[in-house]
Design a protein around this nucleic acid. Structure first.
Length: 543
RNA sequence: GCCGGGGUGGUGUAGUGGCUAACACGGGGGCCUGUGGAGCCCCAGACCCGGGUUCGAUUCCCGGCCCCGGCCCCA
């Protein structure tokens, strides 16, 4: 291979016809579903002012985006589409007297991250924004649309999780936790709960007698090691009298000596010990987070000054209990009412959340789990949130995420307008379809392939092609000047259903030899007849 | 940013401390009157890059780049 100086940038892909066909197929299905609900397609620029995304997500996301500077200022390639759509509304480009607004988009987005399975630096998102209704039926509709897309695609292996951020926010508000602090709690909570999830998974594997992979084991070690480092440093600080955390509590997070023997334990198949080690680690991981929040406080910014907010222990306990609020509705909701019992606002939010679930059942969507631990760093969600995972995808398994964001348009300087919506990852949907073994139908590139047997018949062959095309058929003309047997072989490989063979004798009599490639049957017919026969066959195939 | 596993013609694979680096498909050419959707013959085409070890590296070692997984992150 000659050395190629110009390469495709990392994290991007090319789309040869076969790949493009898959994307088109999924995109078409998505559009069908969206339009069935009355959503109208919109689009926004591929690049936007940096501030549009920094406003909500903060300066930190700079490193996660493609940023560039032009005369007009700092620009970024859009990392998502909700903010641009809200910007568009805020700018007054949309007639708000016609409500609700039902918009959908399909477009490329860009994030500067390490590529991984199902994660690219350039990726496709499709999504809807339903604006103008604050009611539960709007939230339910949005979820129903997302589920419909998966159904339309025939994707069965997925998991829908629905939660509500207003429950958490209401609880925190009632307990006097400032908004800025709330935003800083969500992140660590999410990290903690995903850590716990991982540990639970290892425990489950061991209990089921399954093997842990090398990665599992090193991941487990790493997570515990982090905790150990923190605990040791904290202990040192405590000796110097610099730690705000009481010594006896610190003793409780000291990591088990067995951490250093994980490999040996595993080699020796001392499963029970491993399990008890993991259980112990889970408890300590949680306790460490609690201690940080209670004694060091949650760091936050107020008026440009870094501050720390010391969390009340009972609030922290509730946050921890929240991580367990995952499961079937009948099971989780009552538990949630207990956990949040002291908070009027949280209870009210739970009522509203149940209204959404009720409405959802009217759409026939019953197969989901309630997950009140969904918190994510999504600072702009204000109510219901949901996620859809495809376990087949591995690490990057989320194919859909969405929720209610009633304040976003207003924050961009527009009118106050309630909104709810979601975004789908098209690349991941394609991947999920492939992995689930669903065949994506690839239409043949043409309906008929004309083979002129000599140069003399070219004028007639081209005339035939034009005739057939004028009737709406997709017709290719051979440009290869090959032997007939090779041409037929070629037609076969191209998957084109009909060959039209034209030699001097056909040209002279103004007919064609129409060959049905599949049946291997051939008839001499007029051009009109050929058109009719092909049309009939093609329609029957449903393209 | 971190941790694994990989990079051999256009594609998919084989193989090796030294021999002409193998095979299939694809490409080019040739033979066979217009259905032999085939076959036969010939040709072109590759060891990711840079160091090191060695008489000699595609092979072993190190670094880089890229790909594939995973961690972190995920608005």
């Amino acid at each position: 291979m000659p050395e190629l100086a110009i390469r495709r940038p990392r994290g991007t892909r090319d789309f040869p016809p076969a790949e493009m066909a898959k994307m088109d197929y999924v995109e078409a299905a998505i559009r069908r579903v969206f339009e069935r609900y009355g959503f109208q397609r919109i689009d926004t620029p591929i690049f936007e002012a940096f501030d549009l995304f920094a406003l909500r997500s903060g300066e930190e996301i700079r490193s996660k985006m493609f940023v560039f500077t032009i005369d007009e200022g700092e620009m970024v390639l859009r990392p998502e589409l909700t903010a641009p759509v809200c910007r568009m509304i805020a700018m007054g480009e949309v007639d708000l007297s016609v409500k609700p607004l039902r918009f959908y988009y399909i477009g490329r987005c860009y994030r500067y991250e390490e590529p991984q399975a199902g994660r690219y630096r350039e990726f496709w998102q499709a999504g809807i924004e339903l604006m103008g209704s604050p009611y539960p039926e709007a939230d339910a509709e949005v979820i129903a649309v997302a589920v419909d897309v998966l159904k339309e695609l025939g994707l069965k292996e997925y998991q829908l999780r629905i939660g509500d951020l207003e429950v958490l926010r209401g609880f925190l508000n009632d307990n006097g936790i400032p908004g800025e602090v709330q935003n800083r709690i969500i992140g660590p909570m999410d990290v903690l709960s995903s850590s716990i999830d991982k540990l639970k998974m290892y425990k489950r594997k061991l209990e089921a007698g399954e093997d842990l992979t090398k990665e599992d084991l090193s991941d487990l070690r790493r997570r515990c090691d982090e905790l150990r480092l923190w605990a040791e440093e904290e202990a040192k600080r405590s000796e110097l009298g610099e730690s705000p955390i009481p010594e006896e509590l610190l003793g409780q997070v000291e990591v088990d000596i067995r951490l250093y023997q994980l490999d040996e334990l595993y080699e020796a198949r001392r499963v029970d010990e491993l399990i008890s080690f993991i259980e112990d680690a889970m408890g300590k991981l949680i306790l460490a987070q609690k201690l940080k929040w209670i004694y060091y406080g949650v760091p936050y910014e107020e008026g440009g000054i870094e501050k720390a907010f010391k969390m009340p222990p009972d609030v922290v306990d509730t946050l921890i209990s929240m991580m367990d609020l995952v499961g079937p509705r009948e099971d989780v909701i009552p538990r949630a009412r207990e956990v949040f019992g002291s908070s009027e606002s949280a209870l009210k939010a739970l009522d509203a959340f149940e209204d959404v679930l009720d409405a959802l059942s009217w759409y026939g969507v019953e197969d989901y789990i309630v997950d009140l631990s969904i918190a994510r760093g999504l600072e702009y969600y204000t109510g219901m949130v949901f996620e859809i995972d495809c376990p087949l995808l591995g690490a990057q398994k989320q194919v859909c995420g969405g929720g209610r964001y009633d304040r976003l348009v207003e924050e961009f300087g527009g009118p106050s307008i309630p909104a709810t919506g979601f975004a789908l990852g098209i690349d991941r949907l394609v991947l999920a379809l492939e992995r689930s073994g669903i065949k994506i139908p690839t239409p043949s590139r043409a309906d008929a392939y004309i083979i002129p047997l000599s140069r003399d018949v070219l004028p007639y062959a081209i005339w035939v092609a034009r005739e057939l095309r004028s009737k709406g058929l997709r017709v290719e003309l051979s440009l290869l000047r090959k032997r007939l047997s090779k041409e037929l072989s070629n037609v076969d490989k191209l998957g084109i259903p009909f060959a039209i063979i034209i030699g001097p004798s056909e040209a002279e009599r103004k007919v064609v030899a129409l060959r049905d490639m599949k049946a291997k049957e051939q008839h001499e017919v007029s051009v009109e007849e050929a058109a009719e026969l092909i049309l009939k066959a093609v329609r029957g195939m449903g393209w």
